[in-house]
């Protein structure tokens, strides 16, 4: 499943997508995120039949990821995103 967390508003679309078929809940991405945007939870709330931990965007960050991810996205350049790089399974993608 492709789970997209975030939003789109007049200024643009800001989604973090987790591929739950690839994510094994290892949590590498959580530690490297300077905005504390991600967390690992025991069960996938969007799929009661899936067993095992999964990474999600923290609930109170859903509506703020443009701001909270901003520090990894300087206006001048696009360095590799820590959460995307840290994932051994390439399960995370950003839409912007």
């Amino acid at each position: 499943m492709l789970a997209s967390y975030g939003y789109s508003d007049g200024s643009g679309a800001y989604f973090i997508t987790v591929d739950t078929d690839k994510c094994d809940g290892c949590g590498e991405c959580v530690g490297v995120c300077p905005g504390q945007v991600l967390e690992v939870i025991d069960e996938d709330p969007n799929d009661p039949f899936r067993d095992g931990p999964i990474v999600v965007v923290r609930k109170h960050k859903h509506n703020k990821i443009k701001d909270d991810c901003g520090r990894c996205k300087p206006a001048s350049c696009r360095p590799p995103l820590p959460c995307v790089e840290a994932c051994p399974n390439r399960a995370i993608a950003h839409s912007w």
Binding site: D9, G10, S11, P74, A75, S76
Partner: peptide, 23 residues
């Protein structure tokens, strides 16, 4: 609009928030 500039006032970098009243 947020702008980074040098001592002569030349633009080095900028970021804009528009089309959304929240910002």
């Amino acid at each position: 609009r947020a702008v980074k500039f040098d001592e002569n006032g030349s633009v080095e970098d900028f970021a804009v928030n528009e089309k959304c009243a929240a910002g």
